[in-house]
Each structure stands twice: as C-alpha cells, then as structure tokens.
Amino acid sequence: MASYELSAFDRFFDVSLVGAIEQVSPYTLNVGFWLRDPNQLVQYPELVAAHPRQDFLWNQTCFEIFVGVKDQDFYREINLSPSQAWQAYQFEEYRYPEDMPPVAAYDIELNQLKRTHYGLNVSLDLTEFMLANKLKWTDVFVGLSAVLATSQGEKYFAMQHSSPNADFHNKRDWLHQF
C-alpha cells in the first residue's frame, strides 16, 4: 500500500489529508482517505442510501480518483462523496469532451464506499476498463484529490499542484504508479 500526503492548493494547514492506494486483486483498486480536522471545519453532505450515482458531487465535499493510462490521452475521473453517492466520468483527453456534467463511465464499478470516522474508504472494480483497453497495472497511474467544503471556503487538495490554478485534471500531478 502506498500513501500520499495531499497538499492544499492555497497552503491551508488547518486540515490535513492522506490518501492510500492498494491494488488488491487482478482488477480491484482500494483507496482510503484519512482526514485530520481537529477544528471540525469540513462540512459534510447528508448520508444517502444505496450508493447512487450522482453528478456534480464536487459542489460539496468530494474525494476524487483519476485513473490515467501511460502514453494515452484518455482517462477516468471517479467522484466519491461522504454522503456515499458516487460517479465515474470518461474523458478522451484533457477535459474533453467538455460536457457538463461530463460523460458518465460505466466501465468502472463500485464494490464498496464507506464514510468512516477518519475519512472515506472505497473499493473499485476496474475489470471492464482494464480488459476493454488491454491494460496491466503497470500501464495505469493514479491521482488522488479532494474538494473540501469548509467553514472557510472551498479547499482543493491533491498529490501535487503544478498548474497556476487548482487543476485536478493535470496528469503531471497523478503520481501513483504500479
């Protein structure tokens, strides 16, 4: 299991966030997000039942996983809400197509999504995505990020920020390789 301390785009130090990535079976990806919020600044959406797919989760506190493929332009964005709603999107290249909401991706499935007292755990099934694109884990790289709605405004966390603005779609910031 590899872990990464995610950094806030605007050097916000009142909250800290760590993400951990683990490949567990031939096509299963587990990710955990550990949030430290001693002053309880983060605002959470209400819990929902049955893990529905919902769009625009990033308008509230939302954890995100980006799945890129080496030497390819296409990628997937997975949004995970502490409400336990989720969604996966497909992009052909950087932020394209520009549809809002983005085009849903049905080649990634949710095994489990659970809000915990320390953050969020998710297990994703990448079988269809990886088989359809003839991928091995060594072809894949992953980025972790989060939009945190706080009492002090929205805060943007990522593995690194190499753009002049917070930009989770920048593949240079997706640091995890298998």
Rank of each mutant, 00 (worst) to 15 (best):
M1W: 13
Y4A: 12
E5G: 05
E5S: 15
E5R: 14
F12K: 07
F13K: 15
V15W: 14
G19M: 03
A20R: 11
I21Q: 07
Q23R: 15
V24H: 10
S25G: 10
T28D: 11
N30T: 04
F33N: 04
W34E: 11
Q40F: 11
V42H: 10
E46A: 13
P52H: 05
L57I: 06
W58A: 09
Q60K: 11
F63S: 00
F63E: 00
I65H: 04
F74A: 01
E77S: 04
I78L: 13
I78W: 00
N79H: 09
L80E: 09
P82F: 00
W86T: 06
F91H: 07
D99A: 07
L110V: 02
N111H: 07
Q112C: 10
K114D: 01
Y118A: 09
N121A: 04
N121G: 05
V122L: 00
L124Y: 01
D125L: 13
L126A: 00
T127R: 08
M130T: 03
M130S: 00
W137V: 06
W137S: 13
T138G: 08
D139H: 10
V140K: 02
F141H: 09
F141K: 06
V142M: 06
S145R: 03
S145V: 01
T150I: 07
Q152N: 11
G153F: 03
E154Y: 15
K155S: 03
Q160P: 01
H161T: 07
S162C: 11
P164M: 03
H169Y: 06
H169P: 04
N170S: 10
F178E: 15
